[in-house]
């Protein structure tokens, strides 16, 4: 994996707030990378530093081994698709897409050809003369994409690329983004607050928290092996249970249960995914619990069952439809799970 972009100890303060806290990151050539985090996590600041709209207070930002932290945005071989799309309202689609080529002094004949092929790539041939206000949200998003891609960047930054689209369009556009990324071979760095979007689109995901990277890795790896309570909660709302590890087991008073499995001595908490818990007829010993059903919500292919355990904690249980009818509200239930489902959280 050859790093295209490398951030070394990037730090940025806004007044008294630390937006980026000595952040290290590597992005490889041609990968689809997602910066995931809540508001104030520093993901947008990082994107704006890569684009050149903010300068880091300290640290280095290397593109192909050259420090670009002080290079102004107009001189960086990096392009960005803005969350608001930032289409120039007084120019038609073709002029919007041609803007960067004209700034770069590309010959007039080449501009026409490259604009046409960029618009063809995003499926907007024939829209050249339209003004941005005559386009739908999805079409505007494609123009913004074409306007960045026409520059043939090796690194394309996308700020919440699906954020302004309605639900029906998001899935399709997500697949199209991935197809475009494979087709162009550019590295895509996407900022998003939506963990499903990050997991579905990216080759690798970095989850940011308080200006630091909480965990970075392939979607499946961080989903299945979260490194901390924060990651476990952020990625798909796993049950996180507090307790104490001793002799390969984990006792949780708030669950009223003992967890057995691969549990190192320094385990701080346990994560248990809702879909890995099943309702049992009777249960005893480790990896089982007892509780009362507080509420049941039907979700289509499964039902979400909230169970208040004897220890006081509430557990989210996903009850699959093929396992029959979910328990009723108020029912006493036994819960059980496999040892492999127990994820030990070191922090």
């Amino acid at each position: 994996m050859k790093p295209l972009l490398r951030a070394e100890a990037l730090t940025k303060r806004f007044g008294g707030t630390l937006a980026l806290d000595a952040l290290d990151l590597e992005i490889a050539e041609g990968e689809f990378f997602a910066l995931l985090g809540g508001s104030g996590s520093g993901k947008s600041t990082l994107l704006r530093i890569i684009a050149g709209f903010e300068t880091p207070d300290s640290g280095r930002l290397l593109l192909d081994g050259h420090d670009i932290a002080a290079t102004p945005p107009w001189a960086r071989p990096v392009n960005m698709m803005f969350q608001s799309y930032a289409l120039f309202p007084h120019m038609n689609v073709a002029d919007n897409v041609a803007y960067g080529l004209r700034r770069a002094g590309v010959a007039r004949a080449d501009v026409t050809g490259r604009v046409a092929s960029a618009l063809a790539m995003v499926g907007l041939s024939g829209f050249e003369r339209r003004k941005p206000h005559q386009l739908s949200g999805g079409q505007r998003q494609r123009v913004a994409l074409a306007r960045s891609l026409v520059m043939r960047p090796r690194l394309l930054l996308l700020d919440e690329p699906l954020g302004a689209l309605d639900a029906g369009l998001r899935e399709r556009t997500g697949f199209e983004l991935r197809a475009l990324q494979r087709e162009t071979g550019a590295a895509f760095v996407m900022v998003t607050h939506d963990q499903e979007e990050a997991l579905a689109l990216a080759d690798r995901v970095a989850l940011l928290d308080g200006g630091r990277i909480a965990q970075v890795g392939a979607p499946r790896a961080i989903y299945e092996r979260p490194a901390s309570r924060f990651v476990a909660r952020f990625l798909g709302a796993a049950n996180v249970l507090e307790g104490r590890a001793m002799e390969g087991r984990f006792d949780s008073a708030e669950a009223g249960a003992t967890f057995a499995g691969d549990i190192p001595a320094h385990t701080a908490a346990i994560a248990l995914r809702p879909e890995r818990i099943r309702v049992a007829v009777a249960a005893e010993g480790a990896n089982t619990a007892r509780g009362v059903v507080e509420d049941v919500a039907f979700r289509g292919d499964d039902s979400l069952v909230l169970v208040r355990l004897t220890g006081g904690a509430t557990l989210r249980v996903a009850h699959a439809e093929e396992d029959g009818a979910p328990p009723m509200r108020g029912a006493d239930v036994y819960l059980a799970w496999d040892a492999e489902a127990v994820v030990a959280l070191p922090a």
């Binding site: 709209f53 102004p72 945005p73 107009w74 960005m80 120039f88 007084h90 700034r103």
Partner: peptide, 29 residues
């Protein structure tokens, strides 16, 4: 005026003076 318009111009290679003449000025005309 959406501040990201000026940033988009810069991102696409326009120096501040050019960005002003080609984007800010016509949009506020």
């Amino acid at each position: 005026l959406d501040p990201s318009l000026g940033e988009a111009a810069a991102d696409l290679g326009a120096r501040p003076a050019i960005a002003f003449l080609t984007v800010t000025l016509p949009v506020t005309a």
